[in-house]
């Protein structure tokens, strides 16, 4: 089936199979920031934005993306770099494999929550697993980035 999406601000036409998942479609298209980490829709690595909302691209059928606005890290480079600077200064990017999904969720949170508390930050990001950092350095970076206590 032919779908048309707005990918990072540009109209893109893609030929997809009915059982194709958006994570695969986009990676095959060359969107390498999308990583698959679990195959069971629970690790957060493949998070992208669909209509500005963070969703698991590995749980979404590509056919359902037709007509939707999709944002990946490639489309948010400047903002991602701003946060990544803080994250890297904290040393908490570590292996980096989960970073794109994590950072997209952080940036979505920034839009959705005003001055979030630590509890709200942790709640918003619970679906983003990380095996390297132990999460605390990420939290320090987020607080610095958002300027919250």
């Amino acid at each position: 089936m032919q779908i048309e999406i707005i990918l990072n601000g540009k109209k893109v036409s893609l030929d997809v199979k009915n059982n194709e998942l958006l994570a695969d479609t986009l990676r095959n298209y060359g969107v390498f920031s999308i990583r698959k980490g679990c195959d069971t829709t629970c690790c957060g690595l493949c998070t992208i934005w669909v209509e500005e909302k963070p969703v698991l691209s590995c749980a979404m059928l590509s056919v359902r993306a037709d007509g939707k606005t999709i944002t990946t890290m490639e489309g948010l480079q400047r903002e991602a770099e701003e946060f990544a600077q803080v994250l890297v200064a904290e040393g908490s990017e570590q292996c980096g494999f989960c970073s794109p999904g994590f950072i997209l969720t952080v940036l979505a949170m920034k839009r959705e929550l005003k001055n979030p508390t630590q509890e709200e930050i942790v709640h918003y990001l619970t679906g983003n697993l990380c095996r390297c950092t132990g999460y605390l350095g990420q939290l320090r970076a987020i607080k610095k980035y958002l300027g919250v206590a």
């Binding site: 390498f32 920031s33 990583r35 990946t72 890290m73 490639e74 480079q77 991602a80 770099e81 990544a84 600077q85 994250l87 890297v88 200064a89 040393g91 990017e93 292996c95 980096g96 494999f97 970073s99 794109p100 950072i103």
Partner: peptide, 20 residues
């Protein structure tokens, strides 16, 4: 606390891993 030399590339999703 020198930042990692590969930090920005890996944090911002650049294609630097095996499958990429």
């Amino acid at each position: 606390s020198i930042p990692k030399i590969d930090g920005m590339a890996i944090a911002t999703g650049k294609p630097v891993y095996t499958e990429d």
